[in-house]
Design a protein around this nucleic acid. Structure first.
Length: 425
RNA sequence: GGAGAGGUGGCAGAGUGGUUGAAUGUACCUGACUCGAAAUCAGGCAUACACGCAAGUGUAUCGAGGGUUCGAAUCCCUCCCUCUCCGCCA
């Protein structure tokens, strides 16, 4: 959510910055709503003040044993008028709230301006794609003999679900363990275990609701509705919702390995083959909750924490700075890490690291007590470190051998009881 | 699932319709005393929002929402959460 004061004071600048990310800010509606709000709120508060004042006088008069019928007659009509004003104000405020909740974050000035993915800027590349002296297979063909089974996934649940058995299931687990160990032991994140189902309030906090309900899976349980988390950014970030944390506790660095559930509405026909785009996938997430002045330093640091995983796995990748048109709803700046997939002969997203500045914090009312002792909004950042399923894809494709086996990256071998290769049994 | 108890400021804890945003204690901040500290004394100490150039004024908030009333922390209804006991259960 944006700062409404900023919108009031600098409407044109805000609209212009939002236009760069393909968001058409409706200035006329906002101005109209704001004018109504001002009039009705002022009137409501005046009426409330009058009521409070009168009631107080009745109290005083009664305690003195005086007659109050004159004052009572005077306020007889006040009630209806006040009630009408309050109701009108509530309607306007919820309209304003809905309006604000649907505005995306302002892009940071360093973000390249662009319309789509094609305008993203490559920041750096790491590693050299391996050259193969045999006909390479994609991960579905490499994985099938090793226990990667989409047919069974489809039988149990439908399209976009995977079933893994044997060594490949174990490799998947090894990847997650390795990532979690690296983020906790080398980058000092605190390991967390979080709920996989959350309420609507939590999703509003990080910005998935109200705008992106169709991307989520939900469950009806008795009277209450819960949603499956689309990422543990949701649970890790919301721990500070409605909190004022002490300055000394910053930065808060959290990580968790959780499944993520996404309906992938609107991506029909995209990546239908294989496990690139699934309804359920595992991810190791990093979240930092920081002092506003430190958030851009933290962003760079977190990109490094995600890169460390790919480097240790010796997987070639590139770092991309997303342009204004390609960034997610809550992000002020985002870097994507794209891993080399030889079968697709291209780099594919495997991690996304974003600084949301105060966008989520304002929705969550997540604050810290600043140097002056005053509450101030925090900045929140999140990033994948990494998406486990896609990392498995990258390992299968990059480490495949002519005989159909897959070499296990050295860093993972301790997690595989020293096993060096995956082979069909 | 059944029975009961409870949710008030950072914490503890008063408050069952009227000058209550809320006693008191504690924590914290400032000042006095002191060489300094402790103790003691005095004062301060919630958040959000609106109007205003500002000083300031006002509004809202006692788990959440609704109701009764001129007036609700206090009465009524619904919901949420926590705790205790019983049952079931990984």
């Amino acid at each position: 959510m944006l700062d409404i004061q900023y919108l009031r004071n600098d409407l044109d600048a805000a609209a212009q910055r939002l236009a760069s990310r393909n968001y058409a800010f409706d200035k006329a509606s906002f101005a109209e709503l704001e004018a109504q709000r001002k009039e009705v709120q002022t009137r409501t508060q005046d009426l409330q003040a009058k009521r409070n004042n009168t009631s107080k006088q009745i109290g005083i008069a009664k305690s003195k044993g005086e007659d109050t019928s004159a004052i009572l007659a005077e306020v007889a009509t006040l009630g209806d008028e006040l009630k009408a004003a309050e109701e009108q104000l509530a309607v306007i405020q919820s309209q304003m709230q809905a309006f604000l909740q649907n505005i995306p974050n302002l892009p940071h000035e360093s973000v390249p301006v662009g319309k789509s993915e094609a305008d993203n800027i490559e920041v750096r590349k790491w590693g050299t794609p391996r050259s193969f002296d045999f006909e390479i297979k994609d991960h579905t063909d490499v994985g099938a003999p090793l226990g990667l089974d989409f047919d069974t996934g489809a039988k149990l649940s439908g399209a976009r679900f995977t079933f893994m058995r044997g060594q490949i299931a174990k490799l998947h687990r090894a990847l997650a363990q390795f990532m979690l160990d690296t983020q906790t032991e080398e980058h000092s994140y605190i390991e967390c275990y979080t709920p996989y189902m959350v309420n609507a309030e939590t999703l509003r906090g990080t910005g998935q609701l109200p705008k992106f309900e169709e991307d989520l899976f939900s469950l009806d349980h008795n009277e209450s509705k819960l949603y499956l988390i689309p990422t543990s950014e949701v649970t890790l970030t919301n721990i500070v919702r409605d909190e004022i944390v002490p300055l000394e506790s910053l930065p808060i660095k959290l990580t968790a390995h959780t499944p993520c559930f996404r309906s992938e509405a609107g991506s029909y026909g995209k990546d239908t083959k294989g496990m690139i785009r699934q309804h359920q996938f595992d991810k190791v997430e990093m979240v930092q909750i920081v002092h506003p002045e430190k958030s851009y330093a933290a962003l760079e640091e977190m990109v490094g924490h995600a890169e460390a995983i790919l480097q240790k796995l010796r997987l070639p990748y590139r770092v991309v700075s997303l342009c204004t048109g390609d960034m997610g709803f809550g992000a002020a700046k985002t870097y994507d890490l794209e891993v080399w997939l030889p079968a697709q002969n291209t780099y594919r997203e495997i991690s996304s690291v974003s600084n949301c500045e105060a966008f989520q914090a304002r929705r969550m009312q997540a604050r810290f007590r600043n140097e002056a002792g005053k509450p101030e909004l925090l900045h929140t950042l999140n990033g994948s470190g990494l998406a486990v399923g896609r990392t498995l894809v990258a390992v299968l494709e990059n480490y495949q051998n002519a005989d159909g086996s897959v070499t296990i990256p050295e860093i993972l071998r301790p997690y595989m009881k020293g096993l060096e290769q995956l082979k069909a049994s």
